[in-house]
Simulated assay, not measured.
Amino acid sequence: MQGKNLRFLQADKAVPARQTRAGFLLLEHFSLPAFTQVLDTLVTANLLRPGLFSTTTFGLDGAEIVSDLGLVIRPDAVLGPDALKGLDLLVICGGYRTELNADEELIAWLRGAAARGISLAGLWNGSWFLGVAGLLDGYRCAIHPEHRPALAELAKATQVTSEALVIDNDRLTASSPAGAFQMALSWIGGLHGKALVEGIEDILSFEESRYRRVKVSPMVCVSAPLREVIALMEANLEEPLEIDELALYAGRSRRQLERLFKEQLGTPPQRYYLELRITEARRLLQHTELSQTEVLVACGFVSPSHFSKCYSAYFGYRPSMERRRVR
Rank of each mutant, 00 (worst) to 15 (best):
Q2A: 15
Q2V: 14
K4G: 01
R7F: 14
F8Y: 06
F8P: 00
L9Y: 09
L9G: 03
A14Y: 09
R18D: 14
R18L: 13
Q19W: 04
T20H: 12
L25C: 08
F30T: 00
F30P: 00
F30A: 01
S31Y: 06
Q37G: 01
A45R: 01
R49Y: 03
P50M: 09
S54L: 06
G59T: 05
G59N: 05
L60T: 03
L60H: 04
G62E: 11
E64K: 10
L69E: 13
G70E: 11
V72G: 01
I73C: 09
I73E: 03
D76E: 11
D76A: 15
V78S: 03
L79H: 01
P81Y: 13
P81F: 11
D82V: 08
D82E: 15
K85D: 12
G86L: 15
C93K: 01
Y96R: 09
Y96I: 14
R97G: 02
E99K: 08
N101F: 09
N101T: 12
E104H: 07
L106P: 00
I107V: 15
W109D: 04
W109S: 04
L110K: 02
L110G: 01
G112Y: 05
A121Y: 05
L123D: 04
W128C: 05
W128K: 00
F129H: 08
A133D: 03
L135P: 00
D137H: 02
H144F: 07
P145C: 11
P145V: 14
P145I: 12
H147M: 05
E153V: 03
L154W: 02
K156S: 11
A157Y: 01
Q159R: 07
S162V: 02
S162M: 12
E163T: 01
E163G: 01
D170I: 04
S175I: 05
S175C: 11
Q182A: 13
Q182E: 12
W187E: 02
I203E: 08
V216G: 10
S223E: 11
P225G: 09
L226Y: 03
R227L: 15
R227Q: 10
I230L: 14
I230K: 02
A231W: 06
M233I: 15
E234G: 08
E239M: 08
A250G: 02
G251H: 09
R254N: 13
R255L: 10
L257I: 10
K262T: 06
P268T: 15
P269D: 13
R271A: 15
L274M: 13
L276P: 00
A281P: 04
R283V: 12
R283I: 03
R283N: 11
L284M: 13
Q286T: 07
H287I: 06
T288L: 09
S291A: 14
S291F: 10
E294K: 08
L296K: 00
A298G: 03
C299T: 13
F301S: 01
F301A: 04
S305D: 11
H306E: 11
S308V: 07
K309V: 04
S312K: 15
A313V: 03
A313F: 07
F315S: 02
F315E: 03
R318C: 09
R318F: 09
M321S: 05
R324T: 12
R327W: 07
